[in-house]
């Protein structure tokens, strides 16, 4: 599906779907609110590496960052201590409101973030944020805020965008993903040893998916749903030949014929050391002499 945004109106396949003013009206905007649109359709519209995201069943997601006092008074259907969700029956929009003081404290933590040896990387965030510190939640918030279109209070939106250190978060994420790969390594070896093809394949696929996410993090690309990892990675490889080996590995292990057990085990055995080589290439990039 083709989405287009012009003159503060959203068009689906050339037809006007909704205007920014209609969206703002359903929110009952209050002073200092920052309102932005995000989600797969918006991402697919905005970014070359997100091309293909969003379809006719996807929603436009509406987000609001609201001053703390007004956030507390916002009615909602679902809520946590940092966000609230409500629905607009008239146009079917889901609206998620974030407490601005939370967003500011997240921004402060990210700006001072440093990965340390011997610390489980995402525990760093848990220790430093007293609420809204779930990693999936933070990743999703950052993904959606970064890949968004502001429809109200552009100045404050830009200010907040410039304060958030997205790179620091992605460095942390990269370390966490590499930990996951390292932890799975012995498991896949063990299953190869006993020739358990299905378990070995499942684990190796998890390793490859994590490697694709490492590539995305290295390229400073956020992803907040597993289903978009391969799509974004493949879009990246269209302009970056250096990831061709990883692309081939992905294609062979996810899209190739692996019905025969021996062939399946053989392929995993072949690619396992290559996965480590590709990971090291990413880590050692820039050290060529």
């Amino acid at each position: 599906m083709q989405i287009e945004i012009k003159e503060r109106k959203i068009f689906f396949d050339g037809k006007e779907k909704i205007t920014f003013d209609e969206i703002l009206h359903s929110i009952s905007v209050v002073e200092n609110d920052i309102v932005y649109l995000s989600g797969s359709l918006i991402e697919g519209y905005m970014n070359e590496f997100s091309k293909g995201m969003g379809n006719l069943y996807s929603d436009i997601d509406v987000f609001v960052i609201r001053d703390s006092e007004k956030f507390k008074m916002t009615d909602s259907v679902y809520e946590t201590d940092v966000n609230k969700t409500f629905f607009c029956d008239k146009n079917g929009l889901d609206i998620e409101v974030f407490d601005k003081s939370y967003v500011q404290s997240l921004s402060d933590v990210l700006s001072k973030l440093r990965v340390e040896k011997g610390v489980r990387v995402f525990n760093i965030l848990k220790e430093k944020l007293d609420r809204g510190n779930d990693n999936i939640f933070i990743n999703s918030f950052l993904n959606r805020f970064l890949y968004s279109i502001c429809i109200y209070n552009e100045k404050s939106y830009q200010e907040l965008q410039s304060q958030i250190n997205y790179s620091n978060y992605l460095k942390l994420k990269q370390c966490s993903l590499i930990n996951i790969i390292d932890n799975l390594y012995d498991d896949v070896k063990g299953n190869l040893f006993v020739r358990e093809a299905d378990a070995a394949l499942q684990i190796f696929r998890m390793m490859i998916m994590s490697l694709l996410e490492v590539v995305l993090a290295k390229e400073e690309i956020f992803v907040d749903r597993d289903k978009w990892v391969a799509l974004k990675f493949i879009n990246v490889t269209k302009s970056k030949m250096k990831y061709n080996n990883i692309y081939n590995m992905y294609m062979d292990i996810f899209r190739g014929d692996l019905i025969d057990n021996d062939k399946c085990l053989e392929k995993i055995e072949y690619y396992l050391p290559h996965l480590e080589e590709e990971l090291e290439k990413i880590l050692l990039e820039g050290l060529e002499i």
Binding site: R114, V115, K117, K171, I178, L283, L287, E288, I289
Partner: peptide
Amino acid sequence: IIRKLDDVYYFMSGQDVFEANEIGATIVNA
């Protein structure tokens, strides 16, 4: 295996871990 945390590189094998700076990692990489 080689791993990196911030600007520090680590050469790791089981319990053996050696830290390296960028020049050390550059040498090993070459």
